[in-house]
Simulated assay, not measured.
Amino acid sequence: MQLTGRITPDSLMTLEAYARWRKAHKAEVIAHRKLRSVHLGEHITLQFESEMTVRYQVQEMLRIEKIFEDEGIAAEIEAYAPLAPDGTNWKATMLLEYPDVNERRRELGRLIGVEDRMFVEVEGHERVYAIADEDLDRENDEKTSAVHFVRFEFTPAQVQAIQAGAAVKLGCDHRNYPAHVGIGAETLASLAGDLR
Rank of each mutant, 00 (worst) to 15 (best):
A130E: 10
V159C: 11
I77T: 10
Y177A: 13
D70L: 12
K91T: 12
L108P: 02
A164Q: 14
V122M: 02
E115G: 03
Q158K: 04
Q163T: 11
M1W: 06
I30P: 00
V128Y: 01
Q59P: 05
E42W: 05
V181R: 12
A17S: 12
Y98F: 15
L96D: 09
W21M: 03
R127A: 10
M1C: 03
M1P: 03
H39A: 13
L12V: 09
A31K: 14
A17R: 11
D10P: 00
V58N: 04
E28Y: 01
N102S: 15
V122C: 05
T88C: 10
K169F: 04
H180F: 00
E123W: 00
G72N: 10
D133E: 09
R151G: 02
M94T: 14
I67V: 15
E186P: 02
K169H: 06
E115R: 08
N176Y: 11
I162A: 05
N102I: 11
A27N: 07
V128D: 06
T144H: 07
K169L: 12
Y80F: 15
E97R: 13
E142C: 10
F154K: 07
G41A: 07
G5D: 04
E186N: 13
T144Y: 03
M52C: 05
V58I: 15
F152Y: 04
R106I: 09
L170S: 06
Y18W: 13
K26S: 13
L136C: 04
C172S: 11
A192N: 03
A157Q: 13
L15K: 14
E76Y: 13
A132I: 04
D116A: 13
R196P: 02
F154C: 06
E121L: 11
V181M: 03
E28L: 03
Q160D: 15
R175K: 13
N102C: 09
G5R: 11
I131T: 15
Y177P: 07
R33N: 10
E142K: 15
D194T: 05
A17G: 05
R196F: 06
G184A: 13
T45H: 08
A24I: 04
F119P: 00
K91A: 05
G113N: 03
D141W: 10
I44N: 01
Q2A: 02
K143Y: 05
G41R: 04
L191P: 01
T155K: 08
I77K: 05
T53G: 06
P156Y: 08
R63T: 11
Q163W: 00
S50K: 10
W21H: 09
A189G: 14
D70A: 15
T45R: 15
H148D: 10
R138K: 15
D116L: 08
G124Y: 05
K23I: 12
E71R: 13
N89A: 11
Y80Q: 07
R196C: 01
E69T: 08
F149S: 09
F152H: 04
E49D: 10
L40D: 08
I77P: 08
